[in-house]
């Protein structure tokens, strides 16, 4: 319980640092404060917990990965819908969402440049490239079945974290991260939160998709439960407490 309390405290501090870094008065005044994905923050924290790198560097890795996640999430909020135009053009909120995403991206580059970590800049940039290539495939409905769609979702949602895992020398947990993130994303979708599946503009047969999800979530859940590494067990422990955890973090 004490450990959980410490973790929570540390995560709160990191979250405050990220918010402080991302703050820009005019953006914060006119667009909703960017969402720091709590589940992904927990994931990356856990990934780095037992990793043999200095604390300050760990902090930078968490901050920059989350800034990139925020940048991508913020750009996903930019509407395709012409109704968001005001009488004198694109609405202020839409314009600032474009710029906020760019701003968070530039901060990731700045923070890592300041510690001369070119390799990690490259790792995150590679992940961003792959994510955008997968996003456009989802957008153009380039999947033959739900399985392919879920594989694209894995790339979109998990690439930042799988790239980090490989970078810190934990390639064996990549598939577990992917399964975890998939479950996390699908749960979010089931609970009506905004996910990559909302980008699909032609009819996604929601009922059959959810039933497919329910069936297919069992398998990765079993894999994670039965074969979970230390990382996964730890993550399970955190996730078990996640709701109260996230509630407290959000306050």
């Amino acid at each position: 319980m004490i450990r959980l309390h410490n973790i929570m405290q540390e995560l709160k501090e990191i979250q405050t640092l990220i918010k402080k870094q991302a703050h820009y008065h005019y953006l914060d005044k006119h667009i909703q404060a960017p969402n720091i994905d709590q589940g992904k923050l927990l994931l990356i924290y856990t990934l780095l917990t037992d990793c043999d790198i200095p604390k300050q560097k760990k902090e930078k890795y968490i901050m920059t990965t989350m800034l990139v996640q925020m940048a991508l999430d913020t750009h996903d909020l930019v509407s395709n819908n012409d109704k968001n135009h005001s009488h004198i053009g694109v609405s202020l909120e839409q314009q600032l969402l474009v710029l906020a995403g760019d701003y968070y991206s530039s901060l990731y580059y700045l923070l890592l440049s300041n510690i001369n970590d070119y390799e990690f800049i490259q790792i995150l940039a590679e992940a961003i490239r792959k994510i955008n290539e997968a996003k456009i495939k989802v957008y153009y409905q380039e999947f033959k079945n739900y399985e392919e769609l879920l594989n694209l979702a894995k790339t979109i949602e998990a690439s930042l974290y799988t790239h980090l895992a490989k970078y810190i020398g934990e390639p064996e947990i990549v598939s577990y991260i992917e399964e975890w993130i998939l479950i996390y994303t699908l749960k979010n979708y089931q609970h009506g939160k905004k996910t990559i599946f909302d980008q699909i503009y032609v009819d996604l047969d929601a009922e059959s998709f959810i039933s497919y999800i329910e069936k297919n979530m069992e398998k990765p859940m079993i894999i994670l439960r039965e074969q979970g590494f230390q990382f996964i067990r730890q993550y399970h422990l955190l996730i078990k407490h996640s709701q109260s955890f996230i509630d407290q973090l959000s306050n």
Binding site: A71, L72, H75, V78, V98, G101, D102, S105, S106, Y109, L110, L112, S113, N114, N116, Y118, E119, I121, Q122, A125, E126, I128, R129, N132, E133, K135, I136, Y139
Partner: peptide
């Protein structure tokens, strides 16, 4: 939006082949 993000990612992937602190500090700023 995807194209802009993709191009920026490619720019950073490309420039990080150079390992000179001054270059990255100046460009990122």
């Amino acid at each position: 939006m995807y194209t802009g993000d993709y191009m920026l990612a490619r720019a950073l992937e490309n420039i990080t082949s150079i390992k000179m602190p001054e270059i990255h500090q100046c460009l990122s700023k």
